[in-house]
């Protein structure tokens, strides 16, 4: 399947404001968790059954000794061939034909969580410890099937995220990566041909997040 929708996440534009992280919680009515500062701006520390979108913060120094601060707004990539689905035999995980969204149904409580997580190259699925149901980003399925764009894309003040028909988004992401390469030779549109949520980065993806480009 290669029609449907896609999202480009241009991390070179992202200002790490976390509007997307909050908008996700707001639209999906996900509760806040109790957090503490562990010495970084990132919070919560990881995705969870109630955190489907998380801005990861990573700072360091480059080869020239200059600081960098990368923001990686992590979420399900909605793969064209979803690895998480390999463990799903009874329709627990569905791939919507029209949009391409990969959806976890309530039946995911019957899945082997470890196997499902291992099937995901990007370390995305999370389990509700009480109900055992699995959760992740839905591409705002209830919005995109009602002529609205995903809440995270809508809220982004700097258009770091763009939602649209897959062919256009793939082209846009690849073009953006090419532009960035002029200044940043390591720039890339990560796994553009395999995923629907395409991250454009200007540096080694591992500097953003361990699983940014997959395991």
């Amino acid at each position: 399947m290669s029609e449907g929708f896609s999202i480009m996440v241009d991390t070179s534009r992202c200002t790490g404001c976390r509007g997307c992280q909050i908008a996700c919680k707001q639209w999906n009515e996900l509760p806040a968790t109790q957090t503490k500062n562990v010495g970084s701006y990132q919070n919560p520390q990881d995705l969870s059954a109630v955190t489907w979108k998380l801005v990861r913060f990573d700072d360091g120094k480059n080869e020239k000794g200059q600081p960098y601060w990368y923001f990686f707004t992590d979420q399900c990539r909605h793969c064209l061939s979803p690895g998480c689905m390999s463990a799903s035999e009874n329709g627990e995980i569905k791939q919507d034909e029209k949009t391409g969204a990969v959806l976890f149904t309530p039946k995911t409580r019957d899945l082997n969580f470890k196997a499902t997580l291992e099937g995901c190259p990007y370390n995305i699925p999370r389990q509700d410890p009480k109900t055992k149901q699995l959760f992740k980003c839905t591409m705002c399925f209830d919005r995109i099937t009602n002529n609205e764009i995903p809440a995270c894309v809508k809220t982004c003040p700097v258009s770091a995220m763009v939602f649209g028909p897959r062919d256009k988004i793939v082209e846009m992401a690849k073009k953006r990566a090419e532009e960035l390469k002029k200044t940043y030779p390591k720039a890339a549109a990560l796994n553009a041909d395999d995923v629907r949520v395409i991250y454009v980065v200007k540096d080694d993806p591992k500097k953003y997040y361990e699983f940014a480009a997959g395991k």
Partner: peptide
């Protein structure tokens, strides 16, 4: 709650050099 979840408590930012001098670690 969502904003407090993202930035829950007071913090002070300092360089790695100063932290080393003072024996302070991240967090």
């Amino acid at each position: 709650p969502w904003l407090l979840e993202a930035q829950p408590e007071a913090f002070v930012e300092m360089s790695e050099e100063l932290a080393k001098e003072l024996g302070i670690k991240k967090g």
